[in-house]
Simulated assay, not measured.
Amino acid sequence: MSFENPTREQIGDLLASAGNIAVVGLSDKTDRTSYMVAGAMQSRGYRIIPVNPSVDGEILGEKCYHTLADIPEPVDIVNVFRRSEYCAEVAREAAAIGANVLWLQQGIVNEEAAEICAENGMTAIMDRCIKVDEAITMHGRSRK
């Protein structure tokens, strides 16, 4: 059976109930898509937790962690800005920390990552921009 993303309504429900979003591959360079998307989500009230092994310090005013395992608090969504070939390992790490959702940004697809999510009771979303889906599904809707 081929992978299918959740419906727009289901995605809206996931976003409405989300608090902490770990962003794997979040760049500290302000002209990068990951920075702009994470900044937009932060401005909408989501807590962004940067994950980038190359960055020490902060991104978007939040402490940057080298791995998902280093994050000392619960994570609702793991938003991924990494190439497809790295996503299965990120899915394993997301499952290990008890994340609810693995979100692969637009242009990123990895069937193995989706299978890992299914095996661990997580929702997988692939090839979708979280900022775009948030704007569409949350228009006029409040977060829980």
Rank of each mutant, 00 (worst) to 15 (best):
P74D: 10
I97L: 08
Q105M: 03
S43C: 06
Y46E: 06
C117D: 01
V80M: 08
E62W: 12
I130S: 12
H66L: 11
A95D: 04
V78D: 10
Q10K: 15
T67V: 04
F3C: 09
I11N: 06
G140L: 13
Q42F: 00
V55D: 03
I116R: 02
I108A: 04
V109Q: 12
Q105V: 02
I59F: 00
V109A: 12
A124Y: 00
A135F: 10
A88P: 02
V37P: 02
I11Y: 02
A95P: 04
V80A: 08
G140R: 02
R143Y: 13
Q105D: 04
P72K: 05
E9N: 09
I49G: 06
S43E: 04
D28K: 15
K144W: 14
A16H: 07
R92Q: 13
R128K: 14
M41K: 04
Q42V: 00
I108K: 02
L102R: 07
E62P: 01
D56E: 12
R141I: 15
M138C: 10
Q10S: 07
R32D: 05
F81L: 13
S142Y: 15
N120T: 01
M122L: 03
V24Q: 04
R82C: 05
C64F: 09
G121T: 08
Q105K: 08
V75N: 05
L104F: 08
M36V: 15
E85Q: 14
R47P: 06
R83F: 14
I77R: 06
N100M: 12
A95E: 03
T137D: 05
Q42K: 14
A114P: 07
V75Q: 02
G19F: 02
N79Q: 13
R128F: 11
I108W: 06
V78L: 08
Q106D: 09
P6Q: 09
E93D: 15
E9Q: 14
T7I: 06
G19K: 12
Y46G: 01
V51A: 08
Y86Q: 14
P6Y: 08
G19H: 07
I59W: 01
N100G: 14
F81G: 08
G121Q: 06
R32K: 15
G140Q: 07
G107N: 06
V109K: 07
L14W: 02
G45F: 04
A91F: 02
L14K: 05
M126Y: 04
S142N: 14
A114M: 00
R47D: 12
V24N: 01
T33H: 10
V109T: 15
M138T: 07
S17D: 13
R143C: 11
V24I: 11
I49M: 09
M126P: 04
A22E: 00
G57A: 04
G121H: 09
P74I: 05
A114I: 09
N20P: 08
D70Q: 03
K131I: 12
K131Q: 15
V78R: 07
S34M: 03
D133A: 10
A124G: 06
E85S: 12
Q105R: 10
W103P: 03
Q106F: 12
D13H: 13
S17E: 13
I97F: 05
I116Y: 05
G107Y: 13
Y65W: 01
E115F: 07
A16T: 04
D13N: 13
G25N: 11
